[in-house]
Design a protein around this nucleic acid. Sequence first.
DNA 1: AGTTATTACGTTGCACGTAAAAATG
DNA 2: CATTTTTACGTGCAACGTAATAACT
Lengths: 105, 105
Amino acid sequence: MIELRQLEMFAAVVRAGSFSAAARELRCSQPAISQQMRALERAMGGPLFVRAGRWLELTAAGRLLAERTTVMLAELAATRQRVRAVAAEDFDTVRVCGFPARTRT
Amino acid sequence: MIELRQLEMFAAVVRAGSFSAAARELRCSQPAISQQMRALERAMGGPLFVRAGRWLELTAAGRLLAERTTVMLAELAATRQRVRAVAAEDFDTVRVCGFPARTRT
DNA sequence: AGTTATTACGTTGCACGTAAAAATG
DNA sequence: CATTTTTACGTGCAACGTAATAACT
């Protein structure tokens, strides 16, 4: 299964240009990146990067995924924000509050 | 953090109309659904369902999320398929194979 | 030599299932 | 009373960090 965390990591790698730079950006170890990118490549059925020693290059599949990933992560973030906004002023769920008071008869 | 699995479960719940029906559809236990929906509601900052005893209703936030979720899951599936297709006939990575043979000199 | 990716391994958190309880019609 | 959701609890897996190894300039 394809995981969301992997897409975030992938986006960071593309943006940063290397696994270690992405790890610094995401505040995690680069073995974590390496693992997840391997898993992502397995899920995608082939390599996404060309390991060119110093720097990374994207394969054709990698370029396509990078483009789509950017869009999808942005959509997800926007959705989250909008849903949270609606949930905050929920018109469907009625909240009732009260306080103790003396009966006035 | 919002998880992909949660969105799939949410979509199934919306489609099926109840937690237990969704569990049957996804071949998992309904406590699993219940847990993840609780987590999703926490991530969204408010309730997505109105627990009306027998059936579930969606809140305003739930309706919005349902709409967006359908789109995003479809996009993800399409992306996966397209990337896999490209990875399958990878033009960037060169695969070389050989077999043992007698030298013809 | 210095930077970067991979491999190996131990740990912890989380998703899930089973079982039991609560709620609703 | 039957169906459904929630709570409680135990377990197994997978993501991660640390450490060590390998590869490249």
